[in-house]
Simulated assay, not measured.
Amino acid sequence: MARYVGPQCRLCRREGEKLFLKGIRCDTVKCAITKRKYPPGQFTWGRGKLSKYGIQFREKQKVKRYYGILERQFKNYFKKAERQKGNTGENLLMMLERRLDNVVCLLSFASSRKSARQLVLHGHITVNNKKVDIASYLVKSGDIIKPKDDEATQNIVKANLELMKGRNVPAWMQLRVDTLEGQVIQLPAREDISAPAQEQLIVELCSK
C-alpha cells in the first residue's frame, strides 16, 4: 500500500498547525511549526487567499494527515459515516478516533500514530487477549488493549509510557500503568476528540 514516507514536519507546516506527527518532539522548541510557521516550498509569499473549496480541501487533508490515512480509506470512512444515524461529520471523526493505531497512541503505548501503527502491524498489540495486526481495527466499548506477553514488546511500551508520562488519557478510556492495560470505557463523543478539525467543512466538500 502507498504510504507517505517524506518529512513529517513538512505536513504540519503545510497545514499551518501542529498535527503531533513526531510525538514528544512536537512539544519542544525543535518543532518545525515553532521555528518556521509558513508553508514549505519556494515563493510562499506569492500564494493568494484560499477559495471556499481550498479551505474545505485543506480541512480534509488535515484530518487525513492527523490520522495517517489515505484518500480511498477516507472515502470509505465517509460513506460509512453517511449511512449512520446522526451528524455525518461527528460520525466520521468518532470512527477515526476508534482506530486501533490511534487508541494505542492515546494510551501512550507509542509516542506517535506512526509508531503506534508499526506496533500494531508487527503484531505487538492484543485486543481482549487476541493479537490484532490491523491498524484500522475499530475498538468497541469494553475492549481491553494490551501489549503482547513478550519482554521486548513490554519494555518498548514501558519506555514510551515513561517518555509520555505527562500526557492525559482521554475520558473515554482508562489506563492501568501497573498492568500495561488500557480499556475502552465507552465510545468517544465529539467533545472527547482532540483532532484539530472543522468537520462541517469536510462534509460540505465530500457531499458535492
Rank of each mutant, 00 (worst) to 15 (best):
R47H: 11
P170C: 13
Y67L: 04
L107P: 12
R117A: 03
Q118G: 09
H124W: 02
R117S: 02
T179R: 13
D149Y: 08
G182T: 07
I125V: 13
R58I: 10
S111I: 14
G142P: 00
S141Y: 05
G89M: 00
N168K: 14
K62T: 02
S108F: 04
D150T: 01
K148F: 09
E82N: 09
L161G: 00
K165R: 15
T179H: 09
Q183F: 03
A110E: 00
K158T: 04
G89W: 03
D143E: 08
G54P: 09
V103F: 01
V184H: 05
E59P: 06
A81Q: 04
G68R: 05
G46F: 14
G68D: 01
Q73V: 10
A81N: 01
V139H: 01
E97P: 06
Q174T: 14
V169Y: 03
G68A: 03
L93P: 05
N102M: 08
S51F: 03
K49R: 07
A135Y: 10
Q154V: 01
D143H: 02
L163I: 11
H124S: 07
D101Y: 00
D143N: 07
E71F: 08
I134D: 11
L92W: 08
Q73G: 10
L50R: 09
E151A: 13
D133C: 06
D150C: 04
Q183R: 15
Y67W: 04
K85M: 11
A159I: 12
S108K: 03
V127L: 03
E97M: 08
R72K: 15
V120K: 00
N91R: 06
N87D: 14
Q154T: 03
E151P: 05
K75S: 10
K165D: 10
L100E: 02
E90S: 14
K165W: 08
K148Q: 14
D178S: 15
V157T: 01
H122C: 07
R98Y: 09
Y137D: 11
K146D: 05
Q118N: 13
Q84P: 06
K130R: 15
K60A: 05
M173E: 05
K146L: 10
R99G: 01
V177E: 14
M95V: 03
G166D: 15
V132M: 08
K75E: 15
K114W: 13
G46M: 12
R117T: 02
K165M: 12
G46S: 11
L180S: 03
Q183K: 13
K52V: 10
V63N: 00
G68S: 05
E71W: 04
S115G: 12
